[in-house]
Amino acid sequence: MSSVILTGLGKRYGRAPALTGVDLRLSSGVTGLLGPNGAGKTTLLRILATALAADEGQVRVFGQNPADTAGRLAIRRRLGYLPQESGFPRGFTAFGFVDYMAILKEWSDRAARHAEVRRVVGLADLTAVATKRVHALSGGQRRRVLLAQALIGRPDLLVLDEPTTGLDPQQRARLRDILSTAGETATLVISTHQTEDVAALCERVIVLDQGRVHFDGSVEGLISSAAGRVWLATDRHPEAQHAWRIGTGRWRNVGDAPADVEVVDPTLEDAYLLLVGDRARETEKEVVA
């Protein structure tokens, strides 16, 4: 049973299309959303989080339509959302802000609410700074305050826009732990620029470019699409889309490999670069033609 069904989803800002004909079905587990800046990732997540209304197509979350009031409320009761950016009311402490969000999420019983706030503040590794004012915290800590509020009440749908930004490796590992645990029962959608987060965490990956879905499948499936297109050489190959000198002094070339080269196993990053790169070249050809 899919918890999220998007059919022919479209959204434009003025005349510029942000999303075109997006069809997706999501169920429990962690889905990663990859794509270059401006690909429409944030627009898609905002629509899922009921922060934005779609212009075209159908959105169903837990069978509810966010376009009608009752449906929207039903979705919001089961939603946790980490926006790409958010400010904080002045003077609130980290605990105070999460507590404020918990009030808005209908936790009216004070004792139960504080216990829940303490739980999510602990999950986000913020207990030591819970009593500090949010504005006195570092960027990474503020990001985790936003993450903490998203986790309130163990939501069934977690929409996280770049949750790993500003985290150090230990915090990222901890976040992966939290998200993979949550993904056992809930539907998680995370957007990120870090392909290694997707490789480590997601069973499913969606690549968005210029408002359209260009890949939707398993992480392995995306990686295998780059098989035979990554090779090591003593120099940068002129035909390679991307090439960089690795630690051993050799060059890792990504692109259409010539014959008789030392082909290596691709990573998710290689596959993603190739997918987006191929797309860009196709567009170029169309423009020329």
């Binding site: 402490t93 030591a128 500090k132 004012r133 006195a136």
Partner: peptide, 14 residues
């Protein structure tokens, strides 16, 4: 102890 009090004045719960 005095350091702790100082940190407490900056809302350090630890």
């Amino acid at each position: 102890d005095a350091d702790l009090i100082n940190a407490m004045s900056e809302h350090d719960e630890a």
